[in-house]
Design a protein around this nucleic acid. Sequence first.
DNA 1: ATCGATAATGTAATGTTGTAACCTTGCACA
DNA 2: TGTGCAAGGTTACAACATTACATTATCGAT
Lengths: 166, 166
Amino acid sequence: MLAARCRRAYLGAMGTHHHPINDTAALKDAARTQLIDRGEQWTEMRATVFEALATFDSPASAYDIAEEVSRRRGKRVAANSVYRILDLFVGANLARRVESANAYVANEHPGCLHDCIFLICDQCGKATHIDDDRLTAEVRDVASKAGFKAARPVIEVRGRCGECER
Amino acid sequence: MLAARCRRAYLGAMGTHHHPINDTAALKDAARTQLIDRGEQWTEMRATVFEALATFDSPASAYDIAEEVSRRRGKRVAANSVYRILDLFVGANLARRVESANAYVANEHPGCLHDCIFLICDQCGKATHIDDDRLTAEVRDVASKAGFKAARPVIEVRGRCGECER
DNA sequence: ATCGATAATGTAATGTTGTAACCTTGCACA
DNA sequence: TGTGCAAGGTTACAACATTACATTATCGAT
Ligand SMILES: [Zn+2]
Ligand SMILES: [Zn+2]
Ligand SMILES: [Zn+2]
Ligand SMILES: [Zn+2]
């Protein structure tokens, strides 16, 4: 069920796989298509929020994004408008929320659905996005065995990235 | 290294195990001992915060706890004082922070150290605490293979508990 | 093209969560 | 008795998030 829409081959026995990193323009276009396919509008505002989100190289807070969107539009955009759009994006799988950072990242491969694993560096703030369907399935399985109907696994690892560890 | 202080037998092949639920008094006593062993003081204030925390049946926010502590002490206790003590408790493994809920739970078995898995019900708010050392080790392993120095895995599953699912 | 319905965004206020700076108290120990 | 330190109090503020309601944009039907 999970990752049903992802047609790329798995690498190795672990269910781990990797996606090419689209440039921002291509990513934005994919996001636009994805949203329109869901019957939602792709407005200037939404495009700007997506661009702003995609240009951050670390998870960005709604307020960070509001500030960047304000800059790009040349007028004040309130946080609550950004929250609305981020909620929409998360629902449409265009963005992910990083719970342990109260922040958001653009989904690099909006067309496919995963339970994500984020590695967040406490030093530089950057988040590495990992997909490991076998592992996340096991997390769901553990929950299920406890009589729990898993809806959304939150798997994040706080620590130090390779760059900062050197 | 992990769970080195836990001497209870594992159940099954998965590394999953379970701990008896201490009553509040016994739990509080264990917490007191644990803190004192670390060279920290067990003050009235800390005892009250711990009791308050332990009596909530769902993860409680620092403000919830501050309110309860205020009630118990008959005078206003500021959230900020509660945060200090919660930080101390988390550091000493007497309490855990539930990241996806911005809330805290008492650690039911303060004497042993785990990466915890929480199942949090979106309906009733209750959190079930699971230990599965094999699974959490795999999460650490995935992080490590990505060149990441894992410090603190956050593994939480949002969904519906058995009670609410019926 | 115009209209009316609905979706999207703006505006303002407020609620919730978390931190910082500085002060007071009480105790240990010289 | 002084002096140092840890705990907690007080105040202020920063950061994150939601609510209610007003206004504007979009789109299909006429
Ligand atoms: Zn994929
Ligand atoms: Zn780093
Ligand atoms: Zn244990
Ligand atoms: Zn429930």
